Simulated scan of single mutants.
Amino acid sequence: MKEFATAALPWIILGITIAVLAVKVSKRKNDGTEDDETKGDCTSEGMCLGMCFGMLFGTMGMVNLGLGLSLGMLIGMTAGMFVKK
């Protein structure tokens, strides 16, 4: 069961990332400009911090390094979407 979970987890993370990005893109107006809800969010900063924390947990041996990086970036991007500048 553990082998299946480690093999399927990157695909699950990829699916969640695509779903989050699709929701973010669908909130934009049709003319390409962003509305007030998506203007000035901190997704890139959240991804950077999440990647750092994921690498920290990966090198400490808590999780696999690759899974730590991808999960950290996903969690950071999701958290950064809700923070406004």
Rank of each mutant, 00 (worst) to 15 (best):
F57D: 04
C52K: 01
I12P: 04
A79K: 03
D41P: 09
V63P: 08
L67C: 06
I16G: 04
W11R: 00
I13C: 04
G46H: 02
F4S: 00
F4K: 01
G58H: 02
L9S: 00
C42L: 11
L14E: 03
K39P: 08
S26L: 10
T17P: 02
T43Y: 05
G61S: 08
L71G: 13
D31R: 07
R28E: 14
G54W: 03
A8Q: 02
K24I: 14
L74E: 03
G58A: 03
G58M: 05
G58L: 00
M1I: 01
F82C: 12
S44K: 08
L56Q: 07
K2A: 07
V83F: 09
G15H: 03
C42D: 13
G50L: 02
G58N: 00
T78D: 07
A19E: 12
F53L: 12
G58I: 04
S44E: 06
N64I: 09
V63Y: 08
A19T: 12
F4H: 01
I12G: 02
C42A: 15
F57P: 03
F82K: 10
F53M: 15
M62D: 09
D35L: 06
G40W: 05
A8E: 00
K24N: 13
M1P: 08
I13V: 14
A19H: 05
L14V: 07
G46T: 02
K84C: 06
M51C: 05
L69M: 06
V23H: 15
D31I: 09
T59P: 03
G46F: 03
M1F: 05
N64C: 07
S26V: 10
F4E: 03
C48V: 11
L9M: 06
S70Y: 02
S26Q: 12
A5K: 06
L9T: 00
L56S: 12
T43H: 05
L67M: 10
L56C: 15
G50K: 01
C52I: 14
S44I: 11
L21V: 11
C52F: 09
G80M: 01
G50Y: 04
A79C: 10
A5E: 04
G40N: 03
I13E: 04
K2M: 04
A8V: 00
D35N: 14
K85L: 13
I12E: 02
T43S: 06
A22C: 10
L65V: 11
E45C: 13
M77F: 08
G40H: 04
A79R: 06
L71E: 11
C42W: 10
G72I: 07
F4T: 04
A19S: 13
L65Q: 08
M60Q: 12
A8L: 00
I12Y: 01
K27T: 13
M60A: 14
G58S: 01
N30G: 08
